[in-house]
Simulated assay, not measured.
Amino acid sequence: MLKNNEQAYVRGQKAAIIFKHLKRVVLTWDQRCMAWVKHHKLPTWLGHMPVVIAVLGSLAGILLGGVVIAGCLIFIWAIAFILQQIGQSTRVHITNWDKHPKSSHERFSRENNKDKSTNNGMFEPYDPEPYTYDEYDNRH
């Protein structure tokens, strides 16, 4: 069994091998693109563009994937939190109940609160059909 220092050394060796291989692949593609550009007599900076675009696209894809995974985790956490809160009841303590012994309907209804009523304290319910069809036909 390897010690922690030896395990870290082995992981470093593996990472170096992967990096060297990746670097070799990228430089090979860069040389191929440069050869194609020189063969077609185009500006040399165009030969580096496919490799740059591929590297930047890969980095953008990795970052976007991380953001999507983080967003999914936050969404799942929010759903779990909401489901956890559904079963819990919230206790409400009314501190001024002795001052206002009426029910909430009595305290806030318009017909009992004449000061805030728009029609001078008279309650007029809305009637959607004030006339019958016969009365309407006789009027017009």
Rank of each mutant, 00 (worst) to 15 (best):
G61C: 02
G61F: 00
I62C: 01
I62D: 00
I62G: 01
L64C: 06
L64F: 07
L64P: 00
G65M: 01
G65C: 00
V67A: 06
V67W: 03
V67T: 04
V67L: 05
V67N: 00
V67R: 02
V68G: 00
V68D: 06
V68W: 04
V68K: 04
I69F: 04
I69M: 01
I69N: 05
A70I: 02
G71W: 00
G71C: 01
C72H: 00
C72N: 05
C72D: 00
L73T: 03
L73S: 09
L73R: 08
F75H: 08
F75V: 04
I76E: 04
I76D: 04
I76M: 02
A78S: 04
A78D: 07
A78L: 03
A78Y: 02
I79V: 15
F81W: 14
F81D: 15
L83K: 05
Q84S: 07
Q84G: 03
Q84M: 06
Q85M: 10
Q85T: 08
I86Y: 04
I86A: 10
G87Q: 11
G87A: 06
G87T: 11
Q88N: 08
Q88D: 04
Q88E: 07
S89W: 01
T90A: 06
T90C: 03
T90K: 07
R91K: 08
V92G: 01
V92E: 12
H93L: 05
H93V: 10
H93N: 06
H93G: 00
I94H: 08
I94Y: 11
N96W: 02
W97H: 14
W97R: 15
W97S: 14
W97V: 15
D98P: 02
D98G: 09
D98M: 09
D98W: 06
K99I: 07
K99W: 05
H100S: 11
P101L: 10
P101S: 12
P101T: 14
P101C: 12
P101F: 11
K102C: 10
K102L: 14
S103G: 14
S103Q: 09
H105G: 13
H105M: 14
H105P: 03
R107G: 12
R107Y: 11
R107Q: 15
F108Q: 13
S109F: 05
R110C: 15
R110F: 09
R110E: 15
R110S: 15
E111L: 09
E111F: 12
N112D: 14
N113W: 12
K114N: 09
D115W: 11
D115P: 06
K116Q: 09
K116R: 07
S117A: 15
S117V: 10
S117N: 15
S117C: 14
S117I: 09
S117E: 13
T118N: 14
N119S: 12
N120L: 12
N120D: 15
G121L: 11
M122C: 02
E124H: 08
E124Y: 07
P125K: 03
P125A: 02
P125R: 01
P125V: 04
